[in-house]
Design a protein around this nucleic acid. Structure first.
Ligand SMILES: [Mn+2]
Ligand SMILES: [Mn+2]
Ligand SMILES: [Mn+2]
Ligand SMILES: [Mn+2]
Lengths: 154, 154
DNA sequence: ATTAAAATGTAGCATAGGCTACAAAAAATC
DNA sequence: GATTTTTTGTAGCCTATGCTACATTTTAAT
């Protein structure tokens, strides 16, 4: 019961495949949290500024219908990131608030880095909204170090 | 029939909301093409190197089951990016091949930029797999200009 | 107080992308 | 040529995220 692979072991080709597969898996996992991250950041903004984060406000800022927003808010509550009182808006749990802070800091750092390497401001804001969810902590560290030796943005 | 909003028009607050909504919409749209982009790039790689891009190969490299890969390949064909012959693997249409070339160039540029600002190589490869799908052409131009005045990577 | 408007919630539908399990066909091995 | 392994395809299920349409409740205006 000798198989071809036993006779001719390809020179470490399978590890290469596995590494690539892990890259894609990581990107998929990052994407799965992207929506929740945007929601908590937005809710935190609304609470800090206007004081209220109602489903309709959230929906309008995200560009989705209120039905969609309500469904995702249900998921936020299920995952322990938010609470809500009927007709009193949405609130963040301590976990949700902590996540919002990290997400906001990351968002800003990404925008700043894009601008530092010459991306126009409008474009940096646009692209960062999607990019941010895929930037690891290690990359963020590098971004911060890079910006330190860069001075204020032009 | 005068409403509150008519009497007290908030100072250009609605535009701000609309701009933010457009950012999120753009990120959602970019995400919708992400999977297709990764497939065509991978298929093109397999065809260029080994000569064959079978569903099983594609599935293994992506880290998904073959059933999932086959379903997405069906979508690639539906969208005019690929064709396939039974037990002969998957091929790219001219459109698919063009997309693969653009996606590969973008992927490389993103990795190079990350490394240029100090992100460790492994980390750059990991993060780029998700980031790439959200980098606009304008940002790519900026990346290329930045790298030009940077010399070879350390 | 009545009425109109806005906000909220729910139900039902669609697509995308995962998965397992089963079935059939082709390729490789013996 | 027969058997085993690999590949492919299909069916059915799940979750996430959109949507529209309808019903209800609260808030605002008259
Ligand atoms: Mn975002
Ligand atoms: Mn953001
Ligand atoms: Mn990718
Ligand atoms: Mn890629």
């Amino acid at each position: 019961m000798i198989k071809k692979a036993d006779l001719a072991p390809p020179p470490a080709e399978l590890p290469g495949e596995a590494v690539q597969a892990r890259r894609f898996e990581k990107a998929r996992s990052a994407q799965a949290s992207a929506v929740l991250e945007d929601y908590v950041e937005l809710i935190d903004d609304l609470l800090a500024n206007g004081g209220e984060a109602r489903p309709t406000d959230i929906a309008r800022r995200l560009g989705v219908t209120h039905a969609t927003a309500i469904k995702t808010i249900t998921r936020l509550k299920r995952e322990g990131l938010a609470t809500s009182k009927l007709y009193r808006g949405v609130f963040l749990t301590p976990e949700g608030h902590g996540l919002a802070d990290r997400v906001r800091a990351r968002h800003r750092l990404v925008v700043d880095l894009l601008r530092a390497v010459g991306v126009p401001e409008q474009c940096a804001e646009l692209d960062a909204e999607g990019i941010e969810h895929h930037v690891s902590d290690a990359a963020l560290d590098a971004f911060a170090r890079f910006l330190k030796g860069w001075g204020p943005l032009p």
